[in-house]
């Protein structure tokens, strides 16, 4: 019984929009360094759950703790400054600006300044380094191209780099793989594995189950806002309730 305390602890989280229960009494814990996948059919409340944890939406009831500290109801920028970063399902960069200039906004945040000891340093140089890490080839000068001219795969990686720029302890990816080709997904997976190597805790909302199961330690399944399963990927998919949620119940 000498377990370290969980990094993230969500208990009894509930949110309804009007009469619709988007998230209903969801509880889970996340250990440091773990990679948790969250899956579920469309409209099952996955993105709402992310919005709740990151402070974009206030819950009706329930409690969220991060590093043992209650973060329920805090403003998004405060939650980020504690160490939770996120990406958005819809990427919306500054299309007219070069890719590396898109990195300036997260690099301008108070958290980055604090971590760097009160100084920002050369933001452009840091931006270029980070982009190289996520696969913007420096020799090909991709980072200098305007974001509007880049293919979807690069835009998603730019989104990833923006989250990494905040040097978070927990990153939440909201459908990072959606809209990407198999090759593009294959090129992002090593970046995620590298993040894990740096002991960054990750939550991934995904529809691409095959790719997710390959890297996730644990998978949580939502349906109609309720948690219906939580465990290793293979086990979860075997469970009756999950099959029912994904394939519908048998009629006879």
């Amino acid at each position: 019984m000498n377990q370290p305390p969980p990094l993230l602890k969500v208990s009894g989280l509930t949110k309804s929009f009007g009469g619709v229960m988007a998230v209903s009494n969801v509880s889970f814990e996340l250990k440091e360094g773990e990679l948790l996948g969250i899956i579920g059919p469309n409209g099952s409340g996955k993105t709402t759950l992310v919005n709740l944890v990151t402070g974009f939406v206030k819950p009706n009831s329930g409690r969220i703790e991060f590093k043992g500290k209650k973060i329920t109801g805090l403003a998004p920028y405060k939650i980020v400054s504690l160490g939770i970063a996120r990406t958005f399902q819809m990427v919306r960069p500054f299309y007219q600006l070069p890719a590396f200039k898109n990195m300036i906004i997260p690099l301008y945040s108070p958290r980055v300044k604090k971590l760097a000891g009160g100084k920002y340093g050369d933001r452009d140089a840091v931006a270029l380094d980070l982009l190289e890490e996520v696969g913007f080839e420096r020799d090909a000068h991709v980072a200098y191209k305007v974001a509007g001219s880049l293919p979807q795969g690069y835009l998603k990686r730019l989104e990833l780099a923006k989250a990494m720029a905040l040097r978070p302890d927990l990153i939440i990816f909201d459908e990072l793989f959606s809209g990407l080709s198999l090759a593009e997904v294959a090129s992002i997976v090593p970046i995620i594995e590298k993040l894990r190597f740096q002991e960054i805790t990750i939550i991934m909302i995904e529809h691409r189950l095959k790719e997710l199961f390959r890297i996730a330690d644990r998978v949580l399944v939502l349906n109609y806002g309720e948690k219906i399963a939580d465990g290793p990927g293979k086990e979860v998919m075997e469970s009756e309730s999950v099959k029912k949620a994904y394939l519908g119940s048998e009629t006879d």
């Binding site: 920028y77 970063a85 919306r92 500054f94 906004i105 301008y108 945040s109």
Partner: peptide
């Protein structure tokens, strides 16, 4: 300046600026 870039970002996509840990 970079400050101006953040300001333009608030106009363009305020959620993205919020999620960068900036108090818009």
């Amino acid at each position: 300046s970079d400050y101006g870039l953040v300001v333009k970002g608030i106009n363009d996509n305020d959620r993205s600026v919020m999620s960068a840990g900036i108090n818009i």
